[in-house]
Structures are given as C-alpha cells and as structure tokens.
C-alpha cells in the first residue's frame, strides 16, 4: 500500500480557496480582459454621460437612465462574455483537460469561476457607481432599493454565468467564442434599453429583447436608480419586478440544464 492511501485528500474548502486564487489572478493580470470587461463600461459611461446628458422629464437625466443600463451591461460582460470566452480558451488550450486529470474535485473549477465573476462584477459596479455619484450627480438609491439592486444583480449574474458556461461549449476556441458572443452581446445591449430608452425601441425589437435576461436586468436596475414616477414610461407601465425575478430564475434553470448537458472537459475530437 502506498502512502497516499493513508493520507486523506485535501478538504473541499482548501481546494476552493486555491482555485479562487487562481481565477482571480488569471483575470486581473490579463490586460485585455481587464480593459475589455472592466474599462469598456466605464468609458461608455464617461462618454455617454458627457454627450447625452439630456432631460427625460421629472428632473431625470439620460445619464441616470444609462447608469442602470450600463451596470446591467457590465454584469453581462463579467459573466456571460467572460465565462464564454475564458472557458472556451481553457478548453481548447488543454487547461481543462489538465485539471480533469488531477484529483481536484470538479466543483472547485466552477467555484473558482463564480468567485471570479463575483469579484469582477463587484469591481465594475463599484467603479460605475462611484463615477456616477462623483461626476454626474447620480443619487444613491434609498435603503429598500438596495435590496432590489442586490437580487437583480445576483440573479442576473447567476443566469448569465450559467449561460456563458453553456455557450463556451459551442465555440471551437476562445477567439471564436469572442467573435460570436461579443457582437451578440452588443446587439442585445442596443435592443435591451442600455444605450437607448427601451420605450423608444420598435415593439418587435422589444419582444425579441424580452426573450433574453439583459432587458430584465436593466429594467430591474432602473427601478433602483430612477424615481417611481418614471415607471409609467416603461412599456408595461410599471417596473414589473415580479416578472423580472421570474424571467431571471427561468434563465438560471435553462442555463443550469444546458451546462449539465453540454459541459466538456476536453476538445470535441477526444472521446
């Protein structure tokens, strides 16, 4: 009998910690990822805030409206785009296969990714809110709205993370994942009320946008950043928070199902 039979495997929390450290370093040390995922929303906020600072009525500026949208887009970037591209890259370059050959519990890989998404999301939100407050006079939401902020962020982030993991399995490598997911995310942002007021968008586009999580995330966050008087100008005439929660939960379930069914630790040619 070898010594490994007597020594127990490392505890789950210790491996989770190790993986979380790996994932945080992998993200924050990669300049392209940081610029693309973290700085792009910030730049867009700065540019849009300076250029499109017009009044929407009730003393609400477009920048306030855009604040909700760009946070939703930031969450989308940190979760869906980030996961789809990074996991596709790690699958095609053999990182995933290497991990699958170790005794690392497989859950640890996903725990590491979730920690990465949460850290990046928190960083994006903190920077965006800070810029909004300091440069564009955005009022921080009142007490109860923080709760809405929290659950919209968590549900939106969870559904998009799961979708990102699922989408990664469709791509051949990181580059092709980026080439597919980036235009899709951009398109979604245009029709989901990030760059334009959602009520100004043709209704058929609204219908398409309503199939995906981003529209609902932006809507939920608008309820946080805009006064309730503006709910009347939403297409439904209200913030529809119940429906926001429902759609995001459904997307979480769909994403989870897709992940379980499609996740691969190796390239397609290996069986």
């Amino acid at each position: 009998m070898t010594t490994t039979d007597e020594v127990s495997l490392p505890s789950l929390p210790s491996v989770y910690r190790s993986r979380a450290g790996v994932e945080l370093k992998e993200f924050f040390r990669q300049r392209e990822a940081v610029v693309f995922t973290l700085m792009l929303p910030v730049l867009l906020l700065v540019v849009f805030g300076a250029v499109l600072n017009f009044d929407l009525g009730d003393g609400v500026t477009f920048t306030q409206y855009f604040m909700a949208g760009i946070i939703a887009a930031g969450i989308l970037g940190a979760s869906l785009q980030n996961m789809a591209i990074s996991i596709a890259t790690e699958r095609s370059d053999g990182t995933l296969k290497g991990l699958a050959g170790t005794p690392m519990p497989r859950s640890a890989y996903f725990v590491g990714k979730v920690v990465q998404v949460l850290a990046v999301t928190a960083a994006i939100i903190a920077i965006l809110v800070l810029i909004g407050v300091v440069f564009y006079g955005i009022d921080l939401p009142p007490g109860a709205d923080w709760l809405t902020f929290a659950w919209v962020t968590v549900l939106g982030s969870a559904s998009c993370t799961l979708l990102g993991i699922a989408v990664s399995s469709l791509a051949r490598n990181g580059r092709s994942a980026s080439a597919t997911v980036t235009p899709f995310a951009l398109l979604l942002q245009f029709i989901s009320g990030v760059f334009f007021q959602f009520s100004e968008i043709p209704s058929w586009m609204q219908t398409v946008a309503a199939l995906f999580p981003l529209k609902w995330m932006a809507q939920g966050l608008r309820s946080v950043f805009l006064p309730d008087s503006l709910a009347a100008s939403e297409p439904a005439g209200s913030w529809e928070l119940g429906r926001v929660a429902l759609v995001l939960i459904v997307w979480c379930l769909i994403g989870l199902l897709l992940c379980v069914r499609t996740f691969r630790w190796q390239d397609r040619d290996s069986r």
Partner: peptide, 16 residues
C-alpha cells in the same frame, strides 16, 4: 491522486 499526467498538448497559457 496516485497518477501524474503529462499530456501531449501540455497546459495552456497562464497569467500565473
């Protein structure tokens, strides 16, 4: 835990 594997493809690029 008793195996060591050096794959033909090797590990990917890392920031670590």
């Amino acid at each position: 835990a008793q195996l060591g594997i050096v794959l033909q493809s090797g590990a990917g690029e890392s920031q670590l």
